[in-house]
């Protein structure tokens, strides 16, 4: 496949995520969260079988789009269930553990490929097994995962939720744009400062490690100081890290900066999730989480090309400028919303 086709194929999953987000709350009401999640897991397993069987790039486009559609309810319901099952006093650490394990699982996928290789049926069967196990486990714990489909709250669409919690949605948008721009472009940034190729791959690994290891401490801080305050702290810390990038990129301190940046950049999202769970319940929580998924998809599609364009225009400094700028806007808007909430 050409690079352009690879890029287009990769865009099929986010496209499926964005287009399906609005329909998830209605689907939950229609068939129930448990049935939807188990059904989507099984369709995901079938998609992996289809991709292994068909070996045809046109079919892969369609199947990747379907994967984007069916993983959305799994993301949304998984987070909704975790938020709802967590005792309120421990919600921060629970979401920290949840996101750490999700991140570790996500990192385990490519690692499995290095062991299994990419030819033959083995890697596809691992994907099938992952989705099938997900369905089996969800079915096994299903008795605790029901009850919010008919909670009597008025149906809240994405626009209605955006009116209730615009700062949370901006936090998700910024977190997605910053995280995905950083992961995609930090090697380009490092290369422009003359770093060796082997070091460039390690830059992304340091970001991932920080993301995986530090979500639990951030969750504990959210329990102590409140998630809303921690969104601002994480956004400020991300801004500082971005400004330090050009100053420290050629020094050993860059590893500390990247670890922290990986943690706080995604931490904005984890903190927004904790705040979502403490403010909303039941079907409104589902609608809010669907709005989160939509914002994450948009941030992921808009962020990297936008940062890339700025880097093309003004050089490597375009990356820290975009990151610091987005997080500064988030801090200002979150402070403004806090003052409005206090006044009302």
């Amino acid at each position: 496949m050409s690079p352009a086709l690879i890029g287009l194929s990769a865009a099929m999953i986010p496209l499926g995520l964005i287009l399906s987000a609005s329909f998830v709350p209605a689907a939950v009401r229609l068939v129930g969260g448990r049935n939807l999640a188990v059904g989507c897991s099984l369709i995901g397993a079938l998609c992996f079988l289809g991709i292994g069987y068909l070996q045809d790039w046109v079919a892969w486009f369609v199947i990747r789009f379907i994967i984007g559609v069916v993983i959305n309810p799994l993301y949304i319901l998984g987070e909704v269930w975790a938020l709802s099952l967590a005792p309120p006093s421990r919600r921060g650490r629970v979401m920290g553990v949840f996101n750490t394990l999700m991140g570790a699982g996500y990192a385990a996928g490519p690692f499995a490929l290095t062991l299994l290789g990419t030819s033959g049926w083995a890697p596809f069967m691992v994907g099938v097994a992952g989705f099938a196990l997900c369905a089996v486990i969800l079915h096994a714990v299903s008795s605790k995962l029901t009850g919010f489909e008919d909670d009597g709250q008025p149906a809240s669409g994405l626009v209605g939720f955006a009116r209730m919690a615009p700062a949370l949605l901006l936090a998700v948008l910024v977190s997605a744009a910053v995280q995905q721009s950083t992961y995609a472009l930090v090697p380009v940034f490092g290369a422009s400062y003359g770093l060796a190729e082997a070091v460039l791959a390690s830059l992304v690994m340091a970001l991932s490690l920080g993301n995986i290891l530090l979500q639990i401490p951030l969750g504990l801080l959210a329990e102590r100081f409140g998630a809303r305050a921690m969104i601002i702290v994480c956004a400020l810390a991300t801004t500082v890290c971005a400004l330090l990038l050009p100053l420290l990129i050629t020094t050993p301190l860059i590893w500390v900066v990247l670890l922290v940046m990986g943690a706080v950049g995604y931490g904005v999202y984890t903190m927004a999730l904790v705040e979502l769970g403490s403010r909303f319940k039941g079907s409104v929580l589902v609608a809010g989480n669907a709005a989160f998924a939509l914002m994450w998809g948009i941030g992921g599609i808009v962020g990297p090309p936008g940062a890339g364009l700025l880097m093309q225009g003004i050089g490597p400094l375009g990356l820290p400028v975009v990151i610091a700028g987005l997080d500064a806007v988030l801090v200002m808007f979150a402070l403004y919303r806090s003052s409005v909430r206090r006044a009302s």
């Binding site: 570790a104 699982g105 486990i137």
Partner: peptide
């Protein structure tokens, strides 16, 4: 379940 799904 979600970690399994994340790996896939």
């Amino acid at each position: 379940a979600l970690a399994m799904f994340g790996a896939a």
